[in-house]
């Protein structure tokens, strides 16, 4: 029985993918032209995806095709991309911007981004501790603000890895 399901399963999946693609290619506006680039890596370039969840300073939100055009500034956290074929990718970002344009094209630009599975939990805790000690020893306002940002990134890192 198990063998039977196994043999059927791929064809079912293949079928569903074909259906999804059929639907999405019907109208241009239902597609997203999604670009996700960071200074160190390009994740998506003009790709069509289902949905993107982003953390921003005006609150976390999800982006679907035909989202109202807006701008947002990324907060340290995890961007989740739901791909057309059902795959899901979690990517950690330190900071950056989100642009949603009228023609459903979406650009996420991050200063630094890494897939969450590449992050190490203990290293993340170390980053946070270091940032906290820097904050405690910071003398000037600028140094304090910089350390506070580092703490924010550290906390987001720890949260993402746990």
């Amino acid at each position: 029985m198990a063998a039977l399901t196994r043999s059927i399963f791929p064809s079912v999946r293949l079928l569903s993918r074909a259906v999804v693609q059929g639907i999405s290619s019907r109208g241009y506006a239902d597609e997203m032209s999604f670009t996700f680039a960071a200074a160190n890596q390009v994740f998506y370039h003009n790709k069509n995806v289902k949905q993107i969840d982003v953390p921003s300073f005006s609150g976390a939100f999800g982006i679907l095709p035909k989202h109202v055009p807006t701008l947002a500034v990324l907060k340290p956290g995890v961007v989740t991309v739901y791909e057309i074929d059902g795959g899901k990718q979690d990517i950690f970002v330190s900071s950056g911007t989100v642009t949603i344009n009228e023609d459903s094209s979406v650009q996420i630009l991050a200063e630094e981004a890494q897939p969450v599975q590449n992050l190490d939990a203990s290293a993340a805790r170390e980053v946070l501790q270091q940032a906290q000690s820097e904050f405690a020893s910071a003398s000037s306002d600028v140094a304090k603000a910089e350390a506070a940002i580092a703490i924010e990134v550290g906390e987001a890192l720890v949260k993402a890895t746990s």
Binding site: S58, P69, T70, L71, A72, V73, T97, L109
Partner: peptide, 24 residues
């Protein structure tokens, strides 16, 4: 005007980051 829910603070941050990106 097409873009929704913007304020000066957000635009300034957005601008700073995108100018840095362009310089980069």
């Amino acid at each position: 005007r097409v873009y929704d829910s913007l304020d000066d603070d957000l635009l300034q941050s957005y601008l700073e980051f995108s100018v840095t990106s362009l310089v980069f």
